[in-house]
Design a protein around this nucleic acid. Structure first.
Length: 542
DNA sequence: TTGCAGTCAATATC
DNA sequence: GATATTGACTGCAA
């Protein structure tokens, strides 16, 4: 049915979403019989039926870089493909295999950045984030991404991590040479991979690259080589700088910031990074619990009360929402894998229970530890974390499941006050919600919805010791928030892939069964919430 | 305009 | 020194 519809009523390219474009790309490939080559021929002229949309295929591909106009392959166009379009998962294999060509990453890395001639070959000094794939390959990657069937992002990251650690290869090296990402991004990616279906095309790219890299039999050696080369270069630099009796820093810095002006002003221009004090975070979290989507006014209030820039508050909410959301994805997966595999070992140990609590980590320092008193008694500490986690979907569920199907955010917005945020016996009084509420109330009585957030924030902020003052020194918050100073280590990472030990190590008496149940519960709750808020046809698999 | 995804890069932690 | 965290930024879509 979809095919019929698509063939008879193709939308113009510009009207298509990324997802919507995919079938057209596939069709184009198929028409050109190039499926197996991973090279999307850019056509000057469309051929064949589908083409209103297909023509514009060029855009996305061209940006990839390759010489679009000159692409000679056009001619090949209509030879039917050997196989039907990417029907099966093995398709990816063939696709990926084909891109396994000799390490484009490493070599390409030097010249790899096509559009960025900007940096004078920073000499060997800085391994400036090279584009992992040369122009051509980069294009292929895009195609691959577009055509790739679902990949197991967790499995991929797990394997990558294994390979990296086994071979003592660093994230930085891997990221810069293979993925074209910085260390922090790599770390994040490996630790909290999103499920494939939640990723945008762009977001899928690193995973495809990882997959390709994993498929490359020489992957490790190549990276090792790279490592050696780097080391050499480093030594060389060091050596020369020493002999020049010049401080080695300046030069490199100079090249780095070469673009303009003297290093001096550069330095000044650099904004110092804002570091929120624990109590500020606490306050923001509380505010979040009240209103995940605060109105501009609330944001403003928060900012004043905490003595932060409004942009900082806005950013914080954005980041917090999105990070919490991510944790949820992970949890979902965990729950899922636990559910069906029962046994922990399944693909990846995502079972580790700590992961979610990690959420607490990354997004919340509070619950990482056990709650105040009740403490570890079994679930408590966890539910604390859950509380936060569950908030994610809250926006949607906070109010009645929008009859209209209005998407979440608006519901939770505090402009549309009432709905009595937390308090409101939401349609889904999850345990998490309960705890969340508890947490919130613990410190600040949820007053009028509108003020709740800010008042909570105020309470928290006021307590420890004046906002800004406290900032840098970050004295641990008052009693109640003592939790925030909790050790943040046992993070989701370990739990994610390191599994049993992650959870176990921390709280050996945690009954695994309970954990499973809890995870499952979470999953259910999450699904319910989702369902309530709209989106995705739900597949209930409790 | 607003929210989000994806990143970077500074900083914290191990 | 490697890895994790997180505030900020960019680009895109609704």
């Amino acid at each position: 049915g979809s095919v019929s519809d698509m063939l008879s009523r193709p939308k113009p390219w510009s009207k298509l979403t990324q997802k919507g474009r995919e079938p057209f790309i596939r069709m184009q490939l198929w028409l050109n019989g190039e499926l197996g080559q991973g090279v999307l021929p850019v056509q000057g002229q469309q051929q064949g039926p589908v083409l209103h949309s297909v023509t514009s295929l060029q855009d996305p591909l061209q940006q990839g870089c390759v010489s679009s106009e000159s692409t000679p392959k056009t001619s090949a166009s209509c030879s039917p493909a050997p196989e039907s379009p990417m029907s099966s998962s093995e398709s990816v294999k063939s696709l990926t295999e084909l891109v396994q060509q000799p390490c484009p990453p490493i070599e390409a890395s030097k010249d790899g950045k096509p559009p960025e001639p900007s940096d004078p070959p920073a000499s060997d000094s800085q391994p400036t984030t090279p584009l992992p794939l040369s122009g051509h390959s980069a294009l292929s990657i895009q195609e691959l991404v577009a055509m790739s069937p679902e990949l197991d992002t967790y499995g991929i990251t797990k394997r990558v991590k294994e390979v990296l650690t086994d071979n003592n290869l660093g994230q930085r090296l891997f990221g810069e040479t293979i993925l074209g990402l910085t260390q922090g991004s790599v770390s994040d990616l490996l630790a909290r991979p999103k499920p494939w279906h939640k990723l945008s095309l762009k977001g899928r790219e690193p995973f495809v690259r990882m997959q390709l890299w994993l498929n490359d039999p020489n992957n490790v050696e190549k990276l090792m080589d790279m490592k050696r080369m780097e080391k050499k270069a480093y030594m060389k630099r060091r050596h020369s700088s020493v002999s020049d009796s010049q401080p080695c820093e300046p030069p490199s810095v100079g090249t780095e910031y070469s673009q303009g002006a003297s290093p001096q002003p550069q330095h000044q221009l650099k904004k110092p990074r804002v570091v929120l004090a624990p109590e500020e975070k606490e306050a923001l979290k509380r505010a979040y619990q009240q209103k995940p989507y605060p109105s501009p006014k609330t944001i403003e209030d928060l900012a004043t009360q905490l003595n932060l820039k409004t942009s900082t508050v806005i950013n914080w909410f954005h980041n917090y929402r999105s990070r919490i959301r991510r944790e949820l994805f992970i949890e979902e997966i965990q729950a899922g894998s636990q559910g069906q595999a029962g046994a922990s070992d399944s693909p990846s140990a995502r079972s580790g229970r700590a992961a979610p609590s990690s959420e607490g980590d990354s997004c919340d320092g509070v619950e990482a530890t056990e709650g105040p008193g009740s403490a570890d008694t079994t679930e408590e500490p966890k539910s604390q974390g859950e509380a936060e986690r569950e908030e994610v979907p809250r926006p949607a569920e906070q109010t009645e499941p929008p009859p209209s199907g209005t998407p979440g955010p608006d519901d939770a917005r505090d402009d549309d006050h009432e709905g009595g945020p937390v308090e409101g016996p939401g349609p889904l009084p999850s345990p998490a919600t309960a705890t969340a509420t508890a947490t919130a109330t613990a410190t600040a009585a949820p007053a009028a919805p509108e003020d709740a957030a800010t008042s909570a924030a105020a309470a928290a902020a006021a307590a420890p010791g004046e906002g800004p003052a406290a900032r840098s020194s970050a004295p641990p918050p008052s009693s109640s928030s003592s939790s925030s100073s909790a050790p943040r280590r046992p993070s989701s990472l370990q739990s994610l892939f390191g599994l049993p030990e992650a959870a176990g190590a921390r709280d050996s008496r945690d009954n695994p069964l309970r954990k499973k149940k809890a995870a499952n519960l979470n999953s259910i709750i999450h699904r319910l919430e989702k369902a309530a808020s709209r989106e995705e046809p739900i597949e209930w698999e409790f």
